[in-house]
Design a protein around this nucleic acid. Structure first.
Length: 938
DNA sequence: CTCTCCCTT
């Protein structure tokens, strides 16, 4: 507390489990920080904010209106709140309203080592806010950064972030020691290794839960199935492993399990035979093959370092090993290779073992199934959790003694220039590996088995995963920062700055969306030479501010900002909410046949939901609208859960969508007067007109996600015809892309589409893997919409006089014209379309024409017959050599006059604006008359 | 004829 009171910023270093999150707020409260303002603590996850607030309230024996939490959709904060736990994004939103955070006496950034985008930004902002508050003197702010020990140098060694290195206080960890065991080698087939290691631990090592880290949901499910077959679960009071299994089914499983295990043994023999015959018969056929992950062909292990581990446990004089009859010196390879007798022995050996209680764990698993890891396993069973990265930080499983770490994780990567995403399995970082190991030492000393060598760990594992802000597009973040008045995002004191390319890309996309505009300023250089330098910066537009007010991605913010017509808002809100929530619909027919019946049904339902005509053209987003509508209807009848399971809809997603609809509806009501929208659980389906408008709105949001069907005439090589028959092209990428098979428009193959996501994946074609790019979330669009609704991504080649010459539209105060336009770097032609004329020299010419003819300001009509140059002559090629025309155009262009409104603006500043230029078009006799009428606005 | 780690306003 002394250090904190004497320093503006303090760094607290301690591992998870050191109790700092619960202790420090209490110390601060007791030291009186609660009387000078709020004590705020940010967490990167909602659950953490809620559970920490409850725990601290309990420990301090204070009510929850004093120790409270605030997350996106809910909270229990009151006027009496002194300690406030919140998600990091919530505090960032508060800074937008109150930059100095004047309500707070102290802010704690918890889990700073996780380097979440919002925590990073908060750190940058708070480093400055603390200084500003100190300058004001009266009510200084304390900042405490809590981080895992290893990563504090990220913050202390950053000169831009903190002027003086803040003091670092180390807190002792409460962890028990974990013995780490590396493998001698690093096999590519980590699934197989994980399986074998788990079998060994379970059959040979003392009791204690096992936690296996794999990369994805599919892997987890396969592993769970394999382990359950080998070690069948026993019934418990609250049902068996999957909660539904009957004793009969369990018996069937046991029969299968025998077969399974036989296969494991035979697998080895069969393969040996195959390889030896191959060698004899055809020695040249030794094509190297990519390692195939095949859990059905497991063989039992070759020599590895588990022997050493066993010896280690031998020394700890555990009697279980002897009971098993497999003492440390026994070579299992011998045992299992030694003929049928040994084979039987091996099987019975495993059968006599205690049951294994195998549970899957991944983020998308329904919450009730996730909860099972917290319940004790059935009496006499050993707990074994097969998990993805959720178990690394988000969920802590009790009673884990053994961790099996594949050393891999799946990461989503974004192509900086194309925006194409890909999921890639990579080695984790050293920090992650240590975090995973730590999960074995929460209740007692534990062991971590790493399925990779120490050499690979040292040489190939990076120290830390790159911070999130360097991994993801920063569009939303840039917009949010610009709204806070940070014009030069490059200069922001990021703990780790996003790379230049990423920032430039984000600005470009925001310019396309018209959330930002370019401002060119001219500054005269010092030195009296009169030299000047132009500088272009981007700044938020009015539209940009409206977009940013909505807590969704900028593209979706724009859709909402433009939906204030034709009673579209309820649909736009529902659509944006559904598109913002990930994984609403469960995948259909993707995995094995076990779900074929229900998945066939789901597919039919979705096809029916898609409808025909405009509805079908709205495509996959239409399915979402219908799914949400139907789910809410089912909910009002009280059978939401059944409806979700029947239709392959994620219950959690539906609940999230509902909350988001409420939040967005409130935001709309707050910003638009005369709006009192409600969330209607029985929203009627959109009309045909509304569906068409929704397609246009989607296109406007998806400016950078447009694709065109590759015409067959453009397929040059005959051999490619089959491969490229259903291919699409993106405007800026050469590689073909394909409609994802899950899309309802899959068979329709519309000429032009916009999409929600493009991702690359490796598809196995025969024996080899080939990378292929798919687009999903498809909506059909009409090409003539492109120049009209997304002019910023089109190239306008020519203004057309046919079918109709350009006209002045008085209602919108714009000039409209038909244009010939193209899109993409290879200039795909677009049909002629009626658009607002681009704001350039040509626009000025037409404006001048309409100005002279009196179509813009009626008061000038009487002068028309006296004009010395006709309105149409302005458009002629020779006009540049007519001085009065040339002079007028130069003035208009220099002052960016493209419509009547701009004239009015300028007349407010200078009422004589354009008077002289106009008089040049008239004989001297009219000049006095004109001056009397000037300015000619109403 | 086919994907998906984890989070957040």
């Amino acid at each position: 507390m002394e250090t904190i009171s004497e320093n503006q910023i303090t760094i607290l270093a301690g591992e998870t489990g050191s109790g700092k999150t619960t202790q420090i707020p209490q110390f601060l409260y007791e030291a009186g920080y609660g009387e000078r303002g709020l004590i705020g603590i940010t967490e990167p996850r909602r659950v953490a904010a809620i559970s920490m607030s409850k725990r601290v309230a309990h420990e301090m024996n204070l009510p929850t209106d004093v120790v409270s939490y605030l997350i996106r959709y809910e909270g229990n904060v009151t006027d009496r709140t002194k300690i406030k736990f919140m998600t990091d994004g919530v505090l960032l939103k508060e800074i937008e309203v109150d930059f100095l955070l004047s309500k707070y006496s102290c802010v704690i950034l918890d889990e700073a080592h996780e380097r979440s985008v919002y925590t990073d930004i908060l750190m940058g902002l708070l480093s400055r806010i603390v200084r500003l508050r100190a300058k004001r003197g009266t009510n200084s702010l304390r900042l405490i950064i809590m981080s895992a020990t290893l990563r504090v140098c990220d913050f202390t060694e950053n000169r831009k972030l903190f002027l003086d290195t803040p003091p670092v206080i180390n807190i002792d960890s409460r962890q028990y020691p974990v013995t780490v065991h590396f493998s001698k080698t690093t096999p590519a087939d980590y699934l197989r290794e994980a399986f074998l290691k788990t079998v060994k631990i379970h059959t040979r090592l003392p009791e204690g839960g096992i936690l296996i880290f794999l990369t994805g949901q599919k892997e987890v499910n396969t592993m769970v199935r394999k382990l359950r077959k080998l070690f069948p679960p026993v019934s418990s009071t609250d049902g068996t492993a999957d909660g539904k299994r009957t004793p009969d089914a369990a018996a069937d499983d046991r029969a299968e399990e025998d077969e399974e295990f036989d296969n494991i043994l035979r697998g080895k023999k069969a393969r040996k035979k195959a390889s030896s015959t191959k060698k004899r018969k055809n020695p040249s056929l030794t094509i190297p093959r990519l390692p195939q992950i095949d859990l059905d062909a497991y063989e039992l292990p070759h020599a590895d370092d588990t022997e050493a581990d066993l010896h280690e446990d031998d020394h700890s004089s555990d009697s279980e090993l002897d009971e098993d009859g497999l003492d440390g010196g026994d070579d299992e390879a011998n045992l299992l290779d030694g003929g049928d007798l040994a084979e039987d022995l091996g099987i019975s050996q495993l059968k006599r073992n205690q049951p294994l209680w195998v549970l899957p764990l991944y983020s998308m698993l329904p919450p009730d199934k996730q909860q099972r890891i917290f319940k004790p396993p059935p009496e006499g069973s050993r707990l074994c959790v097969v998990a993805t990265n959720v178990a690394e930080t988000s969920l802590t499983i009790p009673d884990i003694k053994y961790v099996v770490d594949s050393g891999r994780q799946k990461t989503k990567l974004y192509d900086k220039t194309t925006g194409v995403t890909a999921f890639v399995v990579t080695f984790t970082s050293k920090a992650s590996a240590n975090q995973r190991a730590g999960r074995a030492g929460r209740v007692a000393p534990g062991h971590c088995y790493r399925l990779y060598s120490s050499a690979v760990f040292n040489d190939e594992f990076v120290d830390f995963a790159p911070p999130e802000v360097q991994q993801k597009p920063v569009d939303g973040l840039v917009l949010q920062m610009k709204c806070m008045g940070i014009d030069k995002v490059v200069n922001f004191p990021f703990p780790s700055p996003p790379d230049r390319e990423q920032l430039v890309g984000a600005e470009q996309r925001l310019l396309q969306l018209e959330a930002l505009e370019e401002i060119t300023t001219r500054t005269t250089l010092k030195g009296g030479t009169g030299e000047s330098r132009t500088q272009t910066i981007t700044r938020v537009t009015e539209l940009g501010r409206t977009m940013a007010a909505f807590p969704v991605a900028p593209r979706f913010g724009k859709i909402l900002a433009l939906s204030h017509q034709h009673a579209l808002l309820p649909y736009a809100i529902c659509l944006v909410a559904a598109l913002s929530v990930q994984e609403v619909l469960e995948e259909v027919g993707l995995t094995e046949e076990d779900t074929s019946e229900s998945s066939k049904l789901w597919r039919q339902k979705r096809k029916a939901w898609a409808g025909t005509g405009e509805s079908l053209l709205l495509g996959d987003p239409m399915i979402l609208l219908k799914a949400v509508g139907a789910a809410e209807h089912a909910n009002s009848k009280g059978n939401l859960e059944a409806f979700c399971t029947e239709n392959g809809i994620r219950l959690k997603a539906i609940k999230e969508i509902r909350k988001l609809r409420v939040q967005l509806t409130n935001e709309v009501n707050a910003n638009l007067r005369d709006m009192s929208l409600t969330v209607d659980p029985d929203m009627p389906p959109p009309t045909v007109t509304q569906m068409r408008l929704l397609r246009q709105l989607l296109l406007i949001g998806m400016t950078d996600r447009i694709a065109r069907k590759l015409p067959e005439s453009e397929i040059k090589v005959k051999a490619d015809v089959r491969r490229l028959r259903h291919a699409y092209n993106l405007p800026m990428i050469d590689e073909p892309v394909f409609l994802h098979a899950g899309s309802v428009l899959r068979k329709e193959l519309p000429e032009w589409v916009c999409f929600q996501e493009a991702f690359e994946t490796t598809v196995s074609i025969g024996e080899v893997g080939e990378s292929k790019t798919f687009i999903r979330g498809i909506t059909a669009i009409e090409p003539e919409w492109l120049p009209k609704f997304v002019p910023n991504v089109c190239n306008i080649v020519d203004v057309l006089e046919e079918p109709q010459p350009p006209t002045y539209n008085a209602t919108n105060d714009t000039i409209e014209c038909y244009v010939k336009a193209t899109i993409g770097k290879t200039s795909w032609p677009l049909p002629a379309a009626l658009v607002e004329m681009p704001r350039n020299m040509q626009r000025c010419k037409y404006l001048l024409k309409f100005f002279l003819s009196g179509s813009i300001f009626k008061k000038l009509k009487p002068f028309r017959k006296s004009l010395l140059s006709s309105p149409d002559s302005v458009l002629k090629q020779y006009s540049a050599s007519v001085p009065r025309i040339d002079a007028a155009l130069k003035v208009l262009l220099a002052n960016e006059v493209y419509n009547a409104a701009r004239f009015s603006e300028l007349w407010n500043v200078d009422s004589k604006f354009f008077l002289q230029e106009y008089r040049e078009f008239l004989p001297v006799s009219c000049h006095d008359d004109v001056a009397r009428w000037w300015p000619p606005k109403k």
